[in-house]
Structures are given as structure tokens and as C-alpha cells.
Design a protein around this nucleic acid. Structure first.
Length: 827
RNA sequence: GCCCGGAUGUUGGAAUCGGUAUACAAGAUGCGCUCAAAACGCAUUGUCCGUAAGGGCGUGCGGGUUCGAAUCCCGCUCCGGGCACCA
């Protein structure tokens, strides 16, 4: 595609200037009002793909726009540089993960710089830098000291192929590993956890005040999963003094409990199972042990038939409300990790219990009267409101009333208590991997898990390790690393060989950015308070839950354990923007799917400005975008727009136009200019970048026509200047170049243009005249027109008379000055 | 199964508060410029009827509210995303 200017030369020139002049470096004592703009720091997988390009185009727009608005903008970038791919590459090729990772960082950084995205590179952080590891480890130790980090035996998803523990989100719905495709198993391991559940309630309630997409807040609320209910202590028949505690959100339905169910791993299973039932119980427990939690809780195809998923223990428990004995089962769908690991089953008011009861021939007793005709229409479990029935002292109450009355009864009788339960679980941070931040703990035969003294940090992994495809972490195999002495007694001891989940690194990097120059602390307290919270955080919707939840937790925990000052805002991200995904052939564009379109081919042809403009223009930033065969044509179109801009702005600076008084055309252009300033500004503020670009295109079209006729020299020059200012955050290279040619100075140092309200205000407006809701005429009227006059003007219209054809108006709806609707009938 | 989104010309999309449906762009067609092509410029481009003026229809489907619905309500269909036997 032949271009109007040397795109590559212009882009390289300005990128060099921004870099060499440190244009977007900002000091912590900058007197301008602070603004912290941040894109989620990327995992360095190689050169940028279109998802990155979109993300960093939006981020760069915010940085440049807020700078022109007079803010001291903190714009840092770093790399989430620990992670499994580097370790796998090491096993495959023998390259050390650091070598591999540094090369990928170089590629990614280069392609972002080539996009024209600007950062304060002095603040760059990398998770794997010893200086960063140092402070991640200090944070771990402080959490440990405060009781927020702890160790326990826990069932984990174990991938036999990767020889590693997987998070739930790394396991596909069919129970296979997302990387290797192997079936995932369950294993017990001694693991480190962070106690995020201590913050469940705060993490939930604080969501209300965040300027985040409602969708993301809703996802977090559901993830935390607060539910109010009661715990009931059920006596086990034949075991005096033994009770089984269950959690329920529907204590009002207890009269309808016809059986109870425990998780197969529940410790009481051993005690309550009778010899006659032992075989069936053991069979189920053996099967469950080899299944991942995902498989167990999946209702999808391929699982065992429902009747095979439960087994009778032979024991019974007593319903505390009516003294009846009901059978006690185990079933795989009851999880030890939620609630108490046991439930009371009320088939009439829970569909899953209904189905289970039917398959096992268990009785069903309704305790809420379903609506008229429910049974006749084939209704099964009824979960709605209604009058309580078959429920003794609760009869006649509503569900809500009965819940309170039931809990009051339980507490009075000492058989249970009010209880709030959360779905959120503690955060498993242990990883049996090499390429992560080592957990700074020493295991002593005498003193147990002993923290490494802070003056001995960082604990760094040795370089002379072997990467073998055994899956065993090289750390665990490295005698020199493992063997050490106990910090307490100096006797021989072993180092912890687990490393931390990379989500730990990404849970505080935004704080390090505030002050990465501090060699003695993770961040300076005053710098952190100065910049935090992040004013605008930008990233993909895929991080809506985990990363954002962990970062919110860690920020709070750091304040509470004293690593961060008490006046640091507890919410790290004030405003969040989640961009849509780039899809190709129906799925997310990503390296693992092999459907990447690298930006490099566009840098070499249409250039970074056109590619940026395309990403801004193609649709609402929140929406997903499907990359198709037609996409290149749209990108070329953005290049052609910049060519028109170049010809317009290049020619008009030299052109001798008219001077003196303005004619109607001049005034029209001045009004259009100020309307464009107003629209583009409000579009940027409301994240409507596609319409902001459209308004700039309209203005170029208008100015092209104006310039061709008989333009006023100053009107045209002012209009072009305004356009360049508006495009400065969107297409920064070409706008900066044109501005320099016209004025000799730096476009991006200029203040953002302000529209003149007098020029934006219109004097006349098109009034629509409808007859029975159908448009029959359009009239130019003064904006100040009153209702009466608008009605008169409308009724005087010939077209309206024709449409009425003699019928008398029954009613006239007037919304001056925009619309009059003449209604003829009562219809 | 539950929850959250979405569906507008040939295509991406616009319509910010219930008030002109389709801005802007892509594609297509025609014209100009050119020896020619590209580039550039101009024009047309929802659909049906009509020579035209003009009119009918039209925002996934079916209803409803309203003077007026792409927008609000009810019931569907399809697509995307999230969560999942969560008690």
C-alpha cells in the first residue's frame, strides 16, 4: 500500500525521542496531580500479539490523554516473568529458564515500544529479579508471622503428565490437564496456604464502592459466595455423644429432612459405616479418591450414573425438629472443602436431593406449599416461597419467617446455631516447581518450619541444576540448595523446595512500581500512598476473579501486617476497565491456540499508528472482536485516513487562504471543530473510542472539502490543530510529526483542547413531526422554540395536513424542540 | 442446570435519557483522472412497490406497555462468557 508519507521513518523518529528524552518518566515529587495508569503486567511469551496490542493501545491512550490533561501520569511496565512455560522450555531445550525468559521479555518489550506505547522504563520490574524475589519473600514471611500463611495437608489436583499440582482453573471441565491433556488425579500434599478467607467479608462488602464493571463485581461476589444459614448438630444413632454437623441455607425445611449425606472423605465415615455397608462405602471412596474435584462436581457426560454416586453407611441420624431417625449416606457430590462436609437432604425443596431420593427410594415430604397445579404440571422440588406445611410449629409461616424461627429453636435447644458460610477457600500458594519465587522457610527436625531470617533474604535458586522431565522440582534434587542449617539451633535442616504461585508476584507489583528505587524496602510508604490506588487499571476479562481477588487481599494484608503504611488505600484498583478478547475462528487468540497474528507485519506496512487506530475504531473496547479475512482491509482503511490527514495538515500550513471576516462556511467549520472537541473528549471519558475515531474521521472529511474551496486561513489552521491535539493519544507518531512541522514544538506537551460552549450551542435544530408515530416532516426550528409555537408550526406543515387528510387531531404530543407527534385517533 | 452478556444493512459497528434507525468505516457498483493499473477524487449502496413524486415494510422470534420501543416488561430461539451437584 503506497503511503502519503514515510510511515516507518516518522514512527522511528518519535519513538527514539520519547525514549531518549524520557518524555514519560515521572518523579515521585512531581507537583502535578498524580494519576496512576496501569495495564496488567504481561507474562512474557514472546512478541506481542493482537490482544496485547489492543490492551496497550488503550493504556497508552489513557497515559497520553491524562498527561495532556495536566496530570503527572505514572506509567510503568514490568513482566510477570515466573511461570511454567519457561521451565518446560528448559526441560525441552536445556536452556536455563532465565535465559529463555529474558529473551522473551526482550521480544515483547521491543514490540510494545514499536507500537509507540510509552512508559517510565526506569521503573520496570521483573518477578524473577533477585531484588523482586527479596521483597516477595519478605511479604511471605510477614504474612507467616501474622498467621496469614500456614501449612496443612490438602487434597490437590495432581497431573501425572506434568508431575505437578494444578489449580482448578488449569483443569478442563472433563477432568484433564489444560496443558498436557492427562486425566487429573487427587493427591494429598503438605501445602502452604494464604488465609484469604479471613478477608472474605471485607472483600465482598468493599466491592460496592469500586468503579468496576458490574459484571466483574458480580463474578467476585459469586466467587466469595456468602450464604446465610445454620449449622445443625445431628445425633448419630447408636453412637452416644457423637454428632454430625451439617450446614444448610434452608433451616426452615428441616422437618422435610428424609436423609443426610457426608463427603466420602469425612472423618466420621470410618466410625459410622456398618460392616454390612462397608464394601459399598469403600468402593465409592476408592473411586472418588482417583477423581479430581472437577470430575466429581461435574454434571457433564461421562461420569458415573447418579445412583452409583452415593452409598448407604448403615447408620442413621436424628432430626432435631421431630426426633425422627433418617438414613445417613455418603455421596461424591458432597465436598469436604465446602461447609462442614455434610448436608441434610430435603428432597422436596432441593432438586438434586429430589433426584437422589427418587433413585434410592427415599421418602419426600413437602414443607413448603407449592403453587396451585405444581404437581399436576410435573413439578418436582419446589424452591420458591409459600406457606410452611408438615412443619409443626413452623406451619403457616413464610420461608423467611420460618428460617428465623427455626434458627431460634436450634439455638434454644442447643442443637445448632446461626452461621454464615463462604464458598471462598484459602489460597494454595505452594508450587512444586523451579521457576518461581522460593518459599523462604527451613524445615528443622526439632523446630519445624522455621522462617529464614530477613537479613538472609533473598533465598535464590541455584543455577547449576538439571532440568529433567521427571517433574520433580530441580530444587528438591539439588543437595547444595536443600541442605542447610536451622536458623534457630544451627543443626542440619532442609530448605523448603516449593516455590510460590506466580499470582503472589502479581499481587503486589503495582506497589513496587510506586518506588522500585528503594533498595531497603519493597516500596517506600510515602511513594505508595502518593500514587495508590491505581486510578485506571486495564486488563483482560479473564483476570476478573483470581488475579484481582488476590491483589485486593494482599494489599489489605500488607497494610494489616505493617509492610504497607496504615493510610494506604485498602483497595488497589479504583477504576477497572476490562477489554474484550480478540477471537479468531471462534476462540481466543493466544499462543497456545496457534492462531496469532503478529503486529510486526503491520508495523512494516501500514505502521503502528494505523494499527492502533484500527483497534480503537473497530468496535466498543469492552466487546470481543472476531479477526476475519476482512480485517486487513479495515486496517488499510485506517492507514488511508492517516494519509488524508497528512495531506490536509501538510498542505494547509503552507496554503494562503483568505483572512478577515468569517463567512457562513467559516463559522460552520468553527462550530464543527468545537463540536468535535466536545464529542471526542466525552467519548474518551466514557471509553467510547470507536466513536471518538469516527468523529475525527468526519472532521477530516469536512475539512478536506472546506480546504478545497475557499478556506479562511486561520479557521482552517485552528481546525487542523485541534484535530491533531485530539488524535495525539490515538495516533501519536503522525500527529506529533505534523504538529512539529506546523509549529516546531511538541504536540504531547500541549494541553488538551477545550471546546467553546458558545460555538457548540446550536441556534436551530431539526424538529421531527410525526403523525401517529410516523415521521411526516422535518422542520428547522430555533432551539428556544416553545411547546405552543412548536405545535403551531407542526400543524401548519403541508405534509402533515396531507397525512391528516382532513382528520382532526385527537391529541398532540409536543417535546420541543425535537419532536411533535400528532395523534388522530384514540388508538 | 444456574448466573451474566449479546443478536441492528453484504460486513465491523452508530443511535449517551423511551423521541429522525443505520453515523463512521469496510466491501461492492458506476464515473472522473490515467496509455494502463495503483493511488486519489466524486456518486450510489436496508428492502419491497413505483418512470417519478411518494409510499409500505424493517433492529433474532412472539406478545405487551406507550402518542411513540433497537432501547422498558413478559415468553421464546440462537450465539458467547462465567460458575457448577455450593447444601
Amino acid at each position: 500500500m503506497a503511503r502519503a508519507y514515510d510511515v516507518q521513518a516518522v514512527e522511528q523518529k518519535w519513538q527514539a525521542r520519547w525514549r531518549d528524552e524520557g518524555t514519560y518518566e515521572v518523579d515521585n515529587d512531581d507537583p502535578r496531580p498524580p494519576f496512576y495508569a496501569l495495564c496488567m503486567y504481561p507474562y512474557p511469551s514472546g512478541p506481542a500479539h493482537q490482544g496485547h496490542v489492543r490492551n496497550y493501545t488503550f493504556g497508552d491512550l489513557v497515559v497520553r490523554y491524562q498527561t495532556m490533561r495536566g496530570k503527572a501520569v505514572l506509567s510503568p511496565l514490568g513482566f510477570d516473568s515466573f511461570g511454567l512455560p519457561a521451565e518446560n522450555a528448559a526441560i525441552r531445550t536445556g536452556t536455563h529458564p532465565r535465559t529463555f525468559t529474558d529473551a522473551r521479555i526482550g521480544e515483547l518489550k521491543e514490540s510494545l515500544v514499536r507500537l509507540g506505547a510509552v512508559y517510565d522504563w526506569r521503573r520496570e520490574v521483573r518477578s524473577h529479579d533477585p531484588s523482586y524475589i527479596h521483597w516477595t519473600q519478605l511479604i511471605f514471611l510477614r504474612l507467616l508471622d501474622a498467621g496469614l500463611a500456614y501449612r496443612r495437608n490438602a487434597p490437590v489436583n495432581w497431573c501425572p503428565g506434568c508431575q505437578t499440582v494444578l489449580a482448578n482453573e488449569q483443569v478442563f471441565a472433563d477432568g484433564t490437564c489444560e496443558r498436557s491433556g492427562d486425566p487429573v488425579e487427587t493427591r494429598d500434599l503438605e501445602q502452604w496456604f494464604f488465609k484469604i478467607t479471613d478477608y472474605a467479608d471485607e472483600l465482598l462488602t468493599a466491592l460496592d464502592d469500586l468503579e468496576w464493571p458490574e459484571r466483574v463485581k458480580l463474578m467476585q461476589r459469586n466467587w466469595i459466595g456468602r450464604s446465610e444459614g445454620a449449622e445443625l448438630d445431628l445425633e448419630v444413632v447408636g453412637h452416644p455423644g457423637l454428632t454430625l454437623t451439617v450446614f444448610t441455607t434452608r433451616p426452615d425445611t428441616t422437618f422435610g429432612m428424609t436423609y443426610a449425606v457426608m463427603a466420602p472423605e469425612h472423618p466420621l465415615v470410618e466410625v459410622v459405616t456398618t460392616p454390612a455397608c462397608r464394601a459399598a462405602v469403600d468402593e465409592l471412596r476408592a473411586r472418588v479418591a482417583s477423581e479430581s474435584e472437577i470430575e466429581r462436581t461435574s454434571s457433564g457426560e461421562g461420569g458415573p450414573a447418579l445412583e452409583k454416586r452415593g452409598a448407604f453407611t448403615g447408620s442413621s441420624v436424628v432430626n432435631p425438629f421431630n426426633g425422627e431417625q433418617v438414613p445417613l449416606y455418603i455421596a461424591d457430590y458432597v465436598l469436604m472443602s465446602y461447609g462442614t462436609g455434610a448436608i441434610m437432604a430435603v428432597p422436596a425443596e432441593d432438586q438434586r436431593d429430589w433426584t437422589f431420593a427418587r433413585l434410592h427410594g427415599l421418602p419426600i415430604v413437602r414443607t413448603v406449599q407449592p403453587p396451585e397445579g405444581w404437581d399436576e404440571q410435573g413439578g418436582e422440588a419446589y424452591t420458591g416461597d409459600g406457606a410452611k406445611v408438615n412443619s409443626g410449629f413452623l406451619d403457616g409461616l413464610t420461608v423467611v419467617e420460618a428460617k428465623h424461627a427455626a434458627i431460634d429453636f436450634l439455638e434454644r435447644e442447643g442443637r445448632g446455631r446461626r452461621k454464615v458460610n463462604y464458598r471462598l477457600r484459602d489460597w494454595l500458594v505452594s508450587r512444586q516447581r523451579f521457576w518461581g519465587c522460593p518459599i523462604p522457610v527451613v524445615h528443622c527436625p526439632t523446630h519445624g518450619a522455621v522462617p529464614v531470617p530477613e537479613d538472609q533474604l533473598p533465598v535464590l535458586a541455584p543455577d547449576d541444576v538439571e532440568f529433567l522431565p521427571t517433574g520433580q522440582s530441580p530444587l528438591a534434587l539439588h543437595e547444595g540448595f536443600r541442605r542447610t542449617t536451622c536458623p534457630v539451633c544451627s543443626e542440619p535442616a532442609e530448605r523448603e523446595t516449593d516455590t510460590m504461585d506466580t499470582f503472589v508476584d502479581s499481587s503486589w507489583y503495582f506497589l513496587r512500581f510506586c518506588d522500585p528505587f528503594d533498595a531497603d524496602a519493597p516500596f517506600g510508604p510515602s511513594a505508595a500512598v502518593h500514587w495508590m490506588p491505581v486510578d485506571q487499571y486495564i486488563g483482560g476479562i479473564e483476570h476478573a476473579i483470581l488475579h484481582l481477588m488476590y491483589a485486593r487481599f494482599v494489599t489489605r494484608a500488607l497494610v494489616d501486617v505493617g509492610v504497607a503504611p496504615p493510610d494506604l488505600p485498602r483497595e488497589p484498583f479504583h477504576r477497572l476497565f476490562t477489554q474484550g478478547m480478540i477471537r479468531m475462528d471462534g476462540s481466543k487468540m493466544s499462543k497456545s491456540k496457534g492462531n496469532l497474528i503478529a503486529p510486526a507485519r503491520y508495523y512494516e506496512t501500514v505502521g503502528a499508528d494505523a494499527l492502533r487506530l484500527f483497534h480503537l475504531f473497530v468496535g466498543p473496547p469492552t466487546d470481543d472482536f472476531d479477526w476475519t479475512d476482512q480485517t486487513d482491509e479495515v486496517i488499510d482503511g485506517c492507514g488511508r485516513f492517516l494519509d488524508r490527514l497528512w495531506r490536509l495538515a501538510g498542505a494547509s500550513s503552507a496554503q494562503d487562504g483568505r483572512s478577515g471576516a468569517y463567512n457562513d462556511a467559516d463559522t460552520g467549520v468553527r462550530r464543527a471543530t468545537h463540536r468535535t472537541i466536545e464529542r471526542v473528549t466525552s467519548d474518551i471519558e466514557r471509553w467510547s473510542y470507536n466513536t471518538a475515531v469516527a468523529h475525527c474521521m468526519e472532521q477530516v472529511n469536512l475539512l478536506q472539502r472546506y480546504a478545497r474551496e475557499d478556506p479562511h486561513r486561520e479557521v482552517l489552521a485552528d481546525a487542523v490543530d485541534a484535530l491533531l491535539l485530539l488524535l495525539a493519544p490515538m495516533a501519536p507518531h503522525v500527529a506529533a510529526e505534523l504538529w512539529e512541522r506546523r509549529h516546531g514544538d511538541r504536540l504531547h506537551s500541549r494541553p488538551w483542547p477545550v471546546h467553546d460552549p458558545a460555538l457548540v450551542a446550536t441556534e436551530t435544530v431539526t424538529m421531527v413531526v410525526q403523525v401517529n408515530g410516523k415521521v411526516r416532516d422535518r422542520l428547522e426550528v430555533p432551539v428556544t422554540i416553545g411547546d405552543d409555537e412548536a405545535k403551531d408550526v407542526a400543524l401548519a406543515s403541508e405534509r402533515v395536513s396531507a397525512a391528516l387528510s382532513g382528520t382532526a387531531p385527537a391529541r398532540v404530543v409536543v417535546r420541543a424542540p425535537r419532536l411533535v407527534n400528532v395523534v388522530t385517533s384514540g388508538a
